[in-house]
Design a protein around this nucleic acid. Structure first.
Lengths: 132, 132
DNA sequence: CACTTAACTTTTAAAATGCAAGTTAAATTA
DNA sequence: TAATTTAACTTGCATTTTAAAAGTTAAGTG
């Protein structure tokens, strides 16, 4: 999507403002997924052409990078960059919103409590475990 | 959009995961807009049918409410509900992400500094000024 | 060597979006 | 008070995006 305005919110939405991009970021961030097939197998089952185009867009915007897998030459390794990792607070706030306003969802209590009592510490801890 | 999974992030994206919904929320939250025509005149210029369908969806999900304007019977007043207001931390984190990663944008320095040094205080203050 | 896996691309139909114009009720202006 | 303007939409249609399914190519496995 081409830039619509100079608004910082609009700017983020131009990059990840769709139904899928942040789910890819989520999988890379929280679930240790790093390959195309792992991403494709997430619960929401995105179509492979959408996955492909979103990965390309995320890479173009510098949120992820793609490298050949050293062990299996068929594979590519997708990783969050520093700016991709910096989306974590946005995702955390989404989790907190759902924890408060979608009580029918079962969200790990420990995560929510930690996010409420020590957000900065939680973020540091999560970041330390990404891309390993 | 129908529910894709029990993931709290996916849940938020099912409701506001598009290019426009959070801009409507932004305008109601930060710019004191309350009517259809005010929303339509924002910098990003969304089409009126999209605005209409998004307002309907946001109302359906309880993020905004719509009331007749008491002074001008042609008008409707759109307001954030409590759960709509609770999207503020997500928007703030988007602003902070752009402040860090889109330096070509001019984002009010005071807002960014306040968000970094006293996020909770800033949020309280902003909330106090919504829907007035 | 046959089969499977990984990462895509292609095709086609369905859905969403964007643009322009039209509608209705209420307010304003001449 | 008649004509015009404003507000909040809706409608129609062309374009774009998405979804679903099938196909492709290179590489790994039994």
């Amino acid at each position: 999507m081409t830039k619509r305005s100079d608004c910082p919110i609009s700017n983020v939405l131009d990059i990840v403002g769709d139904k899928w991009s942040l789910l890819i970021i989520r999988d890379l961030m929280f679930f240790g997924k790093h390959s195309y097939s792992e991403l494709q197998n997430s619960e929401e089952k995105m179509a492979t052409n959408i996955l492909s185009s979103r990965l390309e867009k995320l890479e173009t915007h510098g949120l992820i990078n793609k490298q050949p897998d050293k062990k299996d030459k068929r594979k590519k390794v997708y990783q969050l960059t520093a700016s991709g990792i910096d989306l974590l607070p946005i995702l955390l706030e989404m989790i907190l919103w759902s924890a408060k306003h979608a009580p029918e969802l079962t969200i790990p209590t420990q995560l929510v409590e930690r996010a409420q009592s020590d957000k900065a510490g939680l973020i540091d801890e999560l970041i330390a475990n990404i891309n390993q």
